[in-house]
């Protein structure tokens, strides 16, 4: 029983170990920063945006697909949120419309991939440019304030601070993680995502509606990208026309770091959760250690390559 648990969770244990080692390393090298609570509050304010998208992207990758368009959907939906908010004065309506638009954008990816049997990588490169371009055309490179959203209780519900310290968005990231974990591991639909990614042809002949699975998986990705866009914009109380840029590689890296292989079929929400934390603390940790920001990318690269190698070796041992 214990052995089975270990065998099934060795990937997750190994990534947790990496996080642990990094934290200890940072605490030793820069105790002033890493032994104070402030840095963790800062982490909890910024990590959720890419974490939420990474959690959602995990489903796409397990399904054997890839999405490169979520940062642009995030940006476009941030724009939609801002415009609808200024038009209606209601955060609730703006949030609703924005998530709806995200779901539609995600559905469009799924539709193109399933209907015309196109590779998801290619389709989402296309839609990535499309949504980013549309945002630029519409906002003409201009940002817009979101300070008036502070009058709505929803603002505090989404990005407020509990006890004046703990960012609420972290709570939302945990909720999203739990929800997606539940679907993936305890619901029939999650099982079908795994089977689709493992062997699409097998899934098909066993009566699983593979096309429907993929469409829903891409649709939810759009919805969560929109949600992350709202959180990120509200956090800074401003809509930046560049919203979403810089999230692509970090988000994908979090998924791979978490042990979900690019071929799909397996993967965990827990792994991605930890992967997103590692990606999130790495930059601050490197700078606090006294290394210049130039080192960040190099260390990112090292950690990712090492982790993915460990995952791959562990997996081959099992198979």
């Amino acid at each position: 029983m214990r052995n089975r648990w270990l065998a099934e969770n060795r990937t997750q244990m190994s990534i947790l170990f990496v996080l642990f080692v990094l934290l200890v390393l940072f605490m030793i090298s820069s105790p002033k920063t890493f032994l104070s609570g402030d840095i963790y509050a800062a982490f909890m304010s910024t990590i959720p945006f890419s974490m939420i998208m990474a959690l959602s992207l995990t489903l796409v990758v397990i399904c054997g697909e890839m999405d490169l368009s979520f940062p642009s959907i995030m940006g476009f939906c941030g724009y939609v949120f801002t415009q609808v908010f200024h038009a209606t004065g209601s955060v609730a309506i703006a949030l609703l419309v924005c998530i709806l638009v995200g779901l539609v954008a995600g559905y469009l990816n799924g539709f193109l991939i399933v209907k015309f049997r196109l590779p998801s990588l290619v389709v989402t490169i296309g839609t990535q440019f499309f949504w980013a371009g549309l945002t630029q055309v519409l906002c003409q490179g201009l940002g817009r304030t979101l300070v008036p959203t502070k009058e709505s209780p929803l603002y505090y519900l989404l990005v407020g601070r509990v006890f004046g310290k703990v960012p609420v968005q972290m709570f939302w990231a945990v909720v999203v993680a739990f929800f997606l974990w539940l679907i993936l591991n305890r619901h029939r639909f999650g099982a079908h995502i795994y089977y689709t990614g493992d062997n699409e042809a097998s899934a098909r002949v066993m009566g699983i509606n593979v096309d429907r699975v993929k469409t829903i998986v891409f649709t939810q990705m759009g919805g969560f990208a929109a949600f992350a866009g709202v959180l990120a914009s509200l956090e800074v109380l401003y809509f930046w026309p560049t919203l979403g840029q810089g999230y692509l590689l970090k988000t994908i890296a979090a998924v791979f770091l978490g042990g979900t292989p690019v071929e799909g079929g397996v993967g965990t929400i827990f792994g991605t959760f930890i992967g997103a934390i590692i990606i999130g603390i790495l930059e601050a940790g490197i700078i606090a250690m006294g290394l210049s920001g130039f080192w960040t990318q190099l260390v990112y690269g090292l950690i990712i390559v090492i982790s993915i190698t460990i995952h791959s070796v562990l997996r081959r041992k099992v198979a």
Partner: peptide, 21 residues
């Protein structure tokens, strides 16, 4: 099926109920 239609990265019990959990 000739190709057996199994999900090889998953457990035996999951495979038995694949598609009709």
């Amino acid at each position: 099926f000739q190709e057996r239609a199994l999900s090889e990265q998953h457990s035996l019990w999951r495979n038995i109920f694949m598609g009709r959990e």
